[in-house]
Simulated assay, not measured.
Amino acid sequence: MKNKVSKLLLPILAGLILVLAACNSESSSNEGSDSDSSSDSNDEQATAYPEQDIDGIIMWGEGGATDIIARTLAPLVEDEIGTSLVMQNKAGAAGAIATQYVYDQPADGYTLLFGAENPNLYQVLDISERSYQEDFVPVTVIANSFAGIIVKEDSPIKTIEDLVEQANANPNDMIFGTTGEGGLPSVVLAMLQNELGTEFKTVPYDGEGPVATALLGGEVDVTAVTVSAAQEYVNSGDFRMLAVVNNESISSLPDVPPITEAYPEIGKYLPWGPFQAIFAHKDTPEDIVKQLSDSVHTAVESDDFKETLANLGMEYLNINGQEAIDFVNKNRSTSAWMLFEAGETEVSPEEFDIPKVEE
C-alpha cells in the first residue's frame, strides 16, 4: 500500500516542481523585460532629440561675419545632428532683438543663438538686461576674429596715421559707420578715443553687411568690421584696410599693418577681438547641450571649415564647457572696462560684478 501511494505522489510532485520552475522563470523573464523596457525607454528619451528642425537665430544682418560663419557651418552641423537648421537673421539693437527672442523661446534646444560678443556689453550700455553669463550657456565658441579699420579704396586716407591726423584736426567731421552701441566699431572707437583722442560723427547700421554697403556707397567715411567681413572687399580692391586691430599682422592679410606698429599704446588692450559662438537658453537640459556641442565640435573640426576660417582671417577655437565660459567672461571684462574708461558708459562694470582684467 505504501509503495502504491509513493508511486502516485511522485508524478504529482514532479508536476508541481515543473509548474513552480516555470513560474519562477516567467517572473524572472518579466522582471528582465521590465528592466529592459525601462532601459530602452530611457535610451529612447536620451536619443529622441532632435525630433524636429532646429531654428538658428543670427543676431546680425546678412553678409556680416556672424552670418557668414553661421550659414557656412549650418549644413555641416546638420550632417552631424541629423536634422535641419533653419537659419534666420533677426538684426537690430546690436543683436539684442535676436538675443531676447531666443531667451523667450522654450529651453528645449530647438532655438539656438548664433551670436557674437555684443551681449557682453548690453548691461553696461543699458541696451538690454540679457547677458551671456546669466541667461545662456555656450554650445561652442567657434572662432576668434580680428577687427580691421577700413576705408574705400579711392579715399584720400591712405594710412591709419592719416585717419588719426584728420580726425584730430577736424573733430566730428568724419563719419564713422557703426553697428550700434556695443558693436565692434564702438569698441574700436573707444580704443582710438582713449589713447589717441580721436572724435568722429557716428551713424549706426544693422550689422557688418549693411555698414560695409554704406561704406561702399559713400554714406560713411570709415568703419571697423571683422577681417572676415571685409576680406572679399579688400581682395577685390573696393576697400583699403588701414590697420588690423591686433599686436601683429595676420596671415590672411599679411600686408596690412597691425595698429600697434603706428600706435604701440593701443597694445594695452590687445589681444582682443570679436568672436563667433552658438548659445542655448541657460535652462536647456545638459544632455541636449552636450549633444549639440559634440555635433558642432565635429563640424567645426572638419578640414573644409577650418579652411573657411583661415580664409576669413579667423582664429580657430572650437571650445565648449568651462573653457568657453572663461573665454566669454574674459572678453566681457576687457570690453566693458575699455568702454567705461573711454567715458562711453556711465555705470561702472563693478555694478554688474564684472572684474577688471589685470594688465
Score class of each variant (00 low, 15 high):
residue 11 P to L: 07
residue 15 G to Q: 05
residue 20 L to P: 01
residue 25 S to Q: 12
residue 26 E to A: 15
residue 29 S to E: 09
residue 34 D to P: 00
residue 49 Y to S: 09
residue 58 I to C: 12
residue 69 I to H: 04
residue 82 G to Q: 05
residue 82 G to H: 07
residue 87 M to F: 14
residue 88 Q to I: 00
residue 93 A to I: 04
residue 96 A to W: 07
residue 98 A to M: 10
residue 99 T to D: 11
residue 111 T to Q: 10
residue 117 E to N: 14
residue 122 Y to S: 01
residue 123 Q to I: 01
residue 127 I to D: 00
residue 132 Y to R: 11
residue 139 V to Y: 03
residue 145 S to P: 01
residue 165 E to H: 04
residue 166 Q to L: 06
residue 171 P to D: 03
residue 173 D to R: 07
residue 180 G to H: 05
residue 183 G to F: 02
residue 189 L to T: 01
residue 199 E to A: 14
residue 200 F to T: 11
residue 201 K to F: 13
residue 202 T to R: 05
residue 203 V to P: 02
residue 203 V to W: 02
residue 204 P to V: 00
residue 224 A to G: 07
residue 225 V to C: 08
residue 226 T to Q: 08
residue 229 A to M: 13
residue 230 A to V: 02
residue 238 D to N: 10
residue 240 R to E: 02
residue 258 P to R: 02
residue 265 E to V: 09
residue 277 A to R: 02
residue 283 D to K: 15
residue 285 P to F: 09
residue 292 L to C: 06
residue 299 A to Q: 12
residue 301 E to P: 04
residue 301 E to I: 02
residue 302 S to A: 10
residue 307 E to P: 00
residue 310 A to C: 07
residue 310 A to D: 07
residue 318 N to M: 03
residue 333 S to Q: 13
residue 333 S to R: 08
residue 349 P to C: 06
residue 349 P to L: 06
residue 357 V to D: 14
residue 359 E to W: 11
